[in-house]
Design a protein around this nucleic acid. Sequence first.
DNA 1: GGATGTGAACGTGTTCACAGCA
DNA 2: TGCTGTGAACACGTTCACATCC
Lengths: 265, 265
Amino acid sequence: MATGRTHRPATRSRGIPEATVARLPLYLRALTALSERSVPTVSSEELASAAGVNSAKLRKDFSYLGSYGTRGVGYDVEYLVYQISRELGLTQDWPVVIVGIGNLGAALAGYGGFASRGFRVAALIDADPAMTGKPVAGIPVQHSDDLEKIVSEDGVSIGVIATPAGVAQQVCDRLVAAGVTSILNFAPTVLSVPDGVDVRKVDLSIELQILAFHEQRKAGEEPGAEAAAGGPAGAPGAAVPPAARSTEDTSRKGPDGDMPAVMPA
Amino acid sequence: MATGRTHRPATRSRGIPEATVARLPLYLRALTALSERSVPTVSSEELASAAGVNSAKLRKDFSYLGSYGTRGVGYDVEYLVYQISRELGLTQDWPVVIVGIGNLGAALAGYGGFASRGFRVAALIDADPAMTGKPVAGIPVQHSDDLEKIVSEDGVSIGVIATPAGVAQQVCDRLVAAGVTSILNFAPTVLSVPDGVDVRKVDLSIELQILAFHEQRKAGEEPGAEAAAGGPAGAPGAAVPPAARSTEDTSRKGPDGDMPAVMPA
DNA sequence: GGATGTGAACGTGTTCACAGCA
DNA sequence: TGCTGTGAACACGTTCACATCC
């Protein structure tokens, strides 16, 4: 969803579509579960429903990886687990640093899904001296003064930023300068990075806002729902609309609910 | 990215593309920052760069909302803040419950980005009796026995699941039964919900896996980089490849790095 | 002049439907 | 027969480039 840039437009190599790459982890998880239950093979139909996609998409996705699978039978679970892992680069060890050990950083440090997928938390880093040395999820927190040393000595190429927004860019700059080339950003800021560095972004409040959008639509369009009047339900006594257009308001073609007459300067 | 279903294909209403909706919160954040600095107007160019998108996309996005903006001048910051907020449904108050108050749940409870966007944490819910009554981020944790009561009494329509994967589906079922129609899921599971309920999913390990994929590519294709041999760098001593195909291995057209000869049953 | 707003071209992703193979 | 693998059709999203209006 938020990759900094697609590295090179289509560097010769058999290009796996980005949308497919984003689903491989989903398939991998479903396959891992099957593997643990010692299921030997799955059909595209079964696997698709376990992963929450439709089977045509799944087959298409797999076709980009190669012709694994057997017609009339399905896919060999173990074999697919390996192929997808390899494709994603999970057959190698990825040391990761987490910067910013608040509640979120701590949650990430203790998240089981990392270790089981080839990711190793190489270090936890925080700027607060009071945290230094304190173990979080069994790993002692190190001070951010040592960030560069940690990254370069451990050959870390993936960094996770879980700091407040205000310091995220400078943490990012230091990580990049020290050699990190992939960043997962939880701070609600747009990070700017040089070419060749990937940034992915996870934003909790954005997700909620998208849900709110759809939620609002439901209320407005339901056959016999809540206090639905004309347009999208007249908001109850909550946030006060900030301000309005200065000069005219003719020619505004805002579809409905134009503006409650208020005024700035 | 992971909406349960597009509610109704295109229910008469002026449809705002999903991709646009997903970017509105981004614009809103950038605009809010400008508003706080009392900037009166922005050009699409300036705003786009603050939000991390290109200006053509931004203008197209805004054109779906209506003709806000003035040719030759730009957009009125306050006005746009209001219009986008309204479009997203943030001018009303959304009570939210968070279920599962571990580190992640606590991080969410304390996350400033909620309150400032019309979201109100109505309740924190956890199954552990030892947590009950304990305040987290200033809000006392309630026991999950009371989930239904809390949801219905407070008119909660958005629920956040931050529980372990094992109980996520049953928490989800209870939330839905109690009246929740939008769910933000942090548990690494595919939730199944009835029609009309939206689910969005945030998965930490998936994001890392996507980064790993690109990271691996970089190493393999860089002009003069790391231990690059032929194909995508021979993985150092890490995860052992799980298993191989049973019968043949002719006819496999796995593009490269086919399989290290091992065997299941 | 200098910006927005938008049709048209393009590219990406999804779905259909069926050929091909075990 | 039953499933995978995939071309072709379609839908969605992005970018270009320019007409339009302040």
